[in-house]
Simulated assay, not measured.
Amino acid sequence: MSVLVLGGTGEARALAERLDGAGVPFVSSLAGRVGRPRLPVGPVRIGGFGGADGLASYLCGERITAVVDATHPFAAGISAHAADACAQARVPLLRLQRPGWSDEPGAHRWKWVDGHDAAARAAAGRGGTVFVTTGRQTLDRFVGPLASCPTLVRVVEQLDIAVPGEWMVLESRGPYDLAAERALMREHGIRVLVTKDSGGAMTRAKLDAADELKVDVIIVRRPPAPAGVETVADVRAAAEWATGVTGAG
């Protein structure tokens, strides 16, 4: 009888540490989309489940007592599958999700858009060098609209798509501090920052640097979360929930 933590985020790794320290049996699951992931403590499985039905079968076969969905705010597919699978298997589900940036100081100055296509179109019409930090999985949406725009792209791992000659690709893994972000934007003459509402402090500094340097900011809104799923923003609250559901501790 154990907890399944759907992970890949800093919150998921912190939750694994808490569960491990409290003696709560658990297993972390990573999607496997990053070649060199940061692994949490404890047992880890890597790879998909085969949709909601596959996840439901896994929950029953592995005698999972509860599921904590601590995936990225933009991992809408696995969150939807988790909601469906837990309903099928009658397993309690909690969503652990960091707060977004919509209530942050300065958020009213940023342009908020629905989807990466809208972000690409908005960036193409601004002029100047564009800094894209939305991740490699959605980068293909920007290739066409920004084909002739000077563009700096920051990704964690090497791209598997061809990019326009006007582009520069920077492979880098956060966290990032304000001084480094400020220096990077000045070095490349950034006029437009494109990002998504990931939330958290790990990549927040780029927004502060953009505000300081009067750089236009375009942010992709989060996809809607599955309806009816209890959500917490605090790792400790998630650990307490998992402990209570399993009866451990």
Rank of each mutant, 00 (worst) to 15 (best):
L139W: 05
G7V: 07
G35E: 07
D234I: 14
D197N: 04
V215R: 00
A31D: 07
D69I: 05
V3N: 05
G247V: 11
Y58P: 00
A248E: 01
A75T: 11
P92V: 10
A179Y: 04
E187F: 15
L93V: 04
L4D: 00
V5W: 00
Y58C: 00
L19Y: 11
A201E: 13
G165T: 04
T129C: 14
R191T: 07
P25N: 12
R45G: 09
A89I: 14
A225M: 12
P150H: 06
R236H: 14
T246W: 05
K111W: 00
G50F: 13
G135C: 02
L30T: 11
R191M: 04
G115S: 08
M185R: 04
A107E: 04
T151L: 13
V153E: 03
A162H: 15
G47L: 01
R173W: 02
D216L: 00
Q97D: 07
I161T: 08
S28L: 12
T231W: 13
R141N: 06
L207H: 05
A239W: 04
G50M: 14
G10Q: 13
H188V: 12
G42Y: 03
D140Q: 14
L4C: 08
G50P: 15
E171S: 12
L178T: 09
V235S: 01
D177I: 12
T246R: 06
M202K: 10
P224R: 10
R182F: 00
F49R: 10
V143K: 07
D234P: 12
M1P: 07
K214R: 15
E181M: 00
A118M: 02
H108E: 15
W110D: 12
W101E: 08
I46Y: 00
P99N: 08
